[in-house]
């Protein structure tokens, strides 16, 4: 056998496949770029201080002006409350699955139901809270009810991503810790969780980003308002996705502009949260380098 040059056929195949890969990439990027471009271009119109600091109270149907302060406030509160509920439960569940449950029956049942929960359409989560919290328990529409629905949506994402991250922690480290005479719970708290911290944060951020844009569950739970309601525990609140939905459905340009600005704000909030999470993750990441 002698050493041969690359045949023309292989060269051609290489070129074709390479072209296909680039094409697929370009197609995938088109919607992303166009969404960002359109939202920035149209949103910039009304993205000003008045928009960020005023509500829609006393703004008539055709009036210009007005803002989304009430919606921004509502979204931040609802997402924060939802995270406060779902992140601890989600991480504790993941710890159970990885550190205690193993492949037992209960652990596998939990994994199965978490997977089922991942597939729940968001409107169903909203309906569930509406039926249970508002209609059955007789509580009022509130930001908290919205947060409950969002928490239902967040939890499976947090559980699954935290579980994957905890699984990545080498069992060498657990054994090293046990061999030092460190009890199991302390090993989890001081060795396993810090090692998986960066990944868990990323998972939590994905979950937060997912629910921040949810509209349907909010429609059914926080109801709707044009006024500022800073108390998430009583009375209807507003959320940014809801605000965008509402404004975009109105016929006049002033409202459409507000909808675009709302969409821009929503994207910026998610981006800022992501950035903050990245910074925290970098600050706490496993130290490497010499």
């Amino acid at each position: 056998m002698s050493i041969q040059t690359i045949s023309t056929g292989r060269r051609a195949k290489d070129t074709i496949v390479r072209g296909l890969v680039y094409l697929a990439f370009a197609i995938a990027v088109v919607p992303l770029v166009s969404v960002v471009y359109l939202v920035i271009k149209n949103g910039a119109e009304r993205f000003d201080l008045e928009f960020l600091l005023h509500s829609m109270r006393n703004i008539g149907a055709r009036d210009a002006g007005g803002g989304a302060y009430h919606a921004i406030l509502g979204t931040l509160e609802q997402v924060a409350l939802a995270s406060l509920m779902s992140v601890p439960i989600g991480i504790l569940t993941a710890i159970y699955l990885v550190e205690y449950g193993g492949n037992g029956r209960l652990a596998n049942a939990i994994r199965f139901f978490v997977d089922v929960m991942t597939g729940i359409p968001s409107v169903v989560a909203g309906l569930f809270i509406l039926a249970f919290w508002v209609l059955y328990l007789g509580q009022s529409f509130s930001g908290f009810a919205g947060a409950l629905a969002l928490a239902v949506l967040m939890m499976p994402t947090v559980v699954r991503s935290a579980e994957e991250m905890l699984k990545l922690v080498p069992s060498d480290l657990r054994e090293a810790s046990y061999a030092l005479g460190v009890p199991r719970w302390r090993t989890i708290v001081k060795v396993v969780l810090p090692t998986a911290f960066t990944g868990i944060i990323t998972g939590v951020m994905l979950a937060v980003a997912r629910v921040t844009g949810e509209t349907a569950p909010l429609l059914l739970t926080v109801f709707f308002t044009d006024s500022i309601n800073a108390d998430p525990f009583s009375g209807p609140q507003m959320g940014l996705p809801l605000y965008v939905f509402d404004q975009a459905g109105r016929p006049n340009d002033t409202a459409i502009d507000r909808a675009w600005a709302g969409a821009l704000t929503l994207i910026l909030i998610v981006m800022l949260l992501n950035l903050a999470a990245r910074l925290i993750a970098r600050w706490r990441s496993p130290a490497t380098g010499r």
Binding site: P170, L180, A287
Partner: peptide, 16 residues
């Protein structure tokens, strides 16, 4: 395990 310590095959310092 506090009384009887152990060193493993692969070095496993805590990465954090």
């Amino acid at each position: 395990r506090r009384t009887i310590g152990m060193v493993f095959q692969r070095p496993n310092p805590f990465p954090t």
